[in-house]
Nucleic acid binder design. Structure first.
Lengths: 349, 349
DNA sequence: ATGAAAGCGCTAACAT
DNA sequence: ATGTTAGCGCTTTCAT
């Protein structure tokens, strides 16, 4: 339509001002400070009046710099949303905007397609760099290469990749596990249980490592482990709870598992935290849980902020510095599912 | 560096294949189907081998179509995150990717700067259209005009603007209010209280309207209203609760208000839902609330999906159809803070 | 079935 | 202090 014709470009401004395109370009981009004051003022006035807006596509193509960051995170959970919000906050003051894509939480059949598709969308739009959380720990070399080969800075968060060496920011899961154990032990618990997942491999494993490390350092403390992917977790938990020396403190590798265990135990007549103390991880309540769960804050804001800072450094300074590796210490949020253990061993029902 | 030189463009492919750039362009874009099979195959083979990736910046600049959507939502809350996730899901299958910016939840001093800045970032990158949630109901005409004037389709969600006529998708707040009242009445409650906010204007007001409409249609039901922005909300609530015929059912316009009221009432010795039933709205638990709150699901997925569909239609068909206006009916999530009222009027403490 | 040429809106030498 | 010229990587007439 008409609007097409009316589009105001630098050429429009140049004509109106009676100067060349080059002059307009340089003035508007604050380059070459040696322009006459009135020329400058005239250009700015016209640009403003005509509501000129630069074409960032062209600018990006010309300069090789788009001021656009590619972000890929798993399907919305509060944690990832908060990380991205923090990234955005840092970007905003640096005039960077993000192209955002969601990958599946974990690798599946279509993951290959989805993740590669998103990466292509980002690469094709010439993002300056990429921040992402891998959906799995291995095998995606191929599309990481799509980023590498183009010399695009890549920052991983939340989950490392075993076969790629690049900047990383995540939670200090080992310390998280330690803190969980130390807290339960400080309350007086000695029989502990860890419920983890062999799927979200490293995070769960690290939390378990930290947890068990403390146990092995503590006299007469002992712990067992269960995996949520085993055939009948509920039965396994109940089996343990009916033993003579049943666990009085349970640490679950995430909140949804903790909520699941909470409802199981409640149904079976256990009181929380009267009989059993229960810890989650991540601070991601579902809303349908009738407990204020004691859990851990992963400081998503700090993770996002750190990732964004590393990103900006990479963009400015390139790959001259070595690989950055940051682990943020989580903090316990003591709420209503943890307390000292019951005095008598009244567990066996 | 070297990588710069090595960058593979259509020209690279053309040279390697011994044809013109034009040929490569047409074949890779599946235009003009009249090419020799072996030419086509050769081109595709070379493109693949050289890992050619089109330059979307150039393509966008040439065609006026970037397949990029501008999204602006308030700082991350689960609700907005879920809406955006749903939008993304619809976009993914249509090869659209989003440029995402966060605006402040409500208008403040810096809002003008922030929102305008983000809109410029989107416009400058030539997004095909924009989906956003306005941070306030009025006064932003100026930057909406930045979108309008460029004939960029604009879809609003969650909150309408009073002075702009454009596509909109949101929650049916009036029906939500009705459902809240009907539910409480069906439980037997007759003395009701609405706690709203005069700040988040239309949503709270609509919920209140629906709520009160039902009350006025119901024999011997009556209700009062409080505003969270009034000087001492807590005192006002307690004052009401100590009256002779105190409210036995409270509907709060959002979950965080409900949680606040819950903790106030609990501290003051009221039992929930024994003495008082409490409803929230939005299904956004904070995690530190010891209740599974009865609340409303706004179906953020449906809202996002609808917004994305309208967006795609606008992109394809332009503004030929009239303004779209959709309200999604919320559904009650009955959890643990609602029950029939106490038999005796034992409220006055 | 393919090529030549112009141009999108702008930047960046290289002038003067 | 400002203009000229060449291109960035691609699409799109218009030819043949």
């Amino acid at each position: 339509m008409a609007a097409y014709r009316e589009r105001v470009t630098m050429k429009t401004i140049a004509e109106e001002a009676g100067v060349t395109l080059t002059t307009v370009s340089r003035i508007l981009n604050h380059k070459g400070g040696k322009y006459a004051k009135d020329t400058k003022e005239k250009i700015f006035e016209i640009a403003e009046r005509l509501k000129y807006r630069p074409n960032a596509l062209v600018h990006g193509m010309q300069t090789g710099r788009t001021n656009t960051a590619g972000i890929m995170i798993p399907v919305s959970t509060p944690f990832y949303s908060q990380v991205v919000t923090a990234i955005h906050h840092t970007f905003l003051s640096n005039d960077v905007i993000m192209l955002l894509g969601w990958n599946p939480l974990r690798a599946d059949q279509r993951k290959e397609t989805t993740e590669r598709k998103i990466i292509h969308q980002l690469v094709d739009r010439r993002v300056d760099g990429v921040i992402l959380r891998p959906s799995s720990e291995a095998f995606e070399r191929s599309y990481f290469e799509e980023i590498w080969e183009r010399d695009i800075p890549l920052i991983l968060f939340d989950r490392e990749m075993s076969n790629v060496s690049t900047d990383f920011v995540g939670t200090d899961d080992v310390v998280g596990g330690r803190l969980a154990a130390e807290y339960l032990i400080s309350l007086g618990h000695r029989e502990l249980l860890f419920v983890g997942s062999s799927e979200r491999v490293s995070t769960s494993r690290h939390r378990e490592d930290g947890f068990r490390n403390v146990l092995s350092e503590t006299a007469n403390a002992c712990g067992q482990s269960l995996d949520i992917n085993q055939s009948d977790l509920n039965a396994a938990v109940l089996h343990l709870m009916k033993q003579d020396r049943c666990p009085t403190g349970i640490f679950c590798y995430n909140d949804s598992t903790a909520e699941r265990v909470a409802s199981l135990l409640t149904e079976e007549g256990f009181s929380i935290p009267g009989d059993v103390s229960l810890l989650g991880f991540g601070n991601e309540p579902s809303g349908s849980c009738p407990f204020a769960l004691t859990t851990f804050d992963q400081h998503p804001d700090l993770i996002g902020q750190t990732a964004a800072k590393i990103y900006l450094e990479r963009i400015e300074k390139g790959s001259q510095n070595g690989v950055r590796y940051e682990r943020i210490t989580p903090d316990i949020l003591i709420r209503a599912t943890s307390a000292p253990p019951p005095n008598e061993a009244r567990c066996s029902k």
